[in-house]
């Protein structure tokens, strides 16, 4: 048996495994954080992504506005902006339905920041762009189809 590993497990068994490991200098805080949400970026379905982000169900909402072109000529650069009018919006995630891994980006919105973010994403093919908004502990979603004439993955 690997005794060092046993010991590490025991020390970290209580609360704050992550904290204990960081304190022990075993992993840097950056690594620990990366592990935390890395899982969400590796999911392959909407349901799994939602679960990895800590939600169970997401209700359709008309209060989320997705600004993206109807037709994107170049899938490598698709401008997407998401605005949420839901009060107490905590985070906004942008998902591309048919990409190998759905989650493209997730944004944490502290109080005082407008729940309105914009970026550019890659899209492999014509697909729905899904915005997942967490507000007051609940999840809401909206989607918009973007047609892609030239794929952004591979090539």
């Amino acid at each position: 048996m690997n005794h060092r590993r046993r010991k590490a497990l025991q020390t970290g068994a209580g609360l704050g495994t992550l904290g204990a490991l960081i304190a022990a200098g075993l992993i840097s805080p950056g690594d620990a954080l990366a592990q935390d949400w890395k899982a969400a970026f590796e999911t392959r379905s909407l349901q799994d992504t939602l679960k990895a982000l800590g939600g169970t169900t997401a209700a359709e909402s008309k209060d989320i506005t997705i600004t993206a072109p109807d037709i994107a000529e170049n899938g490598a650069v698709v401008p997407v902006a998401v605005a949420s009018a839901i009060p107490k919006t905590e985070s906004i995630a942008i998902l591309i339905d048919k990409n190998p891994n759905l989650l493209a980006a997730s944004f944490m919105i502290p109080a005082g920041t407008d729940p309105n973010v914009g970026t550019r994403v890659k899209m492999g093919q014509t697909s729905n762009v899904v915005a997942l908004v967490k507000a007051d502990g609940k999840y809401f979603m909206a989607s918009k189809e973007v047609k892609v004439t030239l794929g952004g993955c591979g090539g």
Partner: peptide, 24 residues
Amino acid sequence: KPVLSAQWGPAVSKNPFLSFKFKG
């Protein structure tokens, strides 16, 4: 004072662009 934090996957375009707004 933190105004935004984001986690990105590889699906964000090359030479990424980001826009956001904050009050205060």
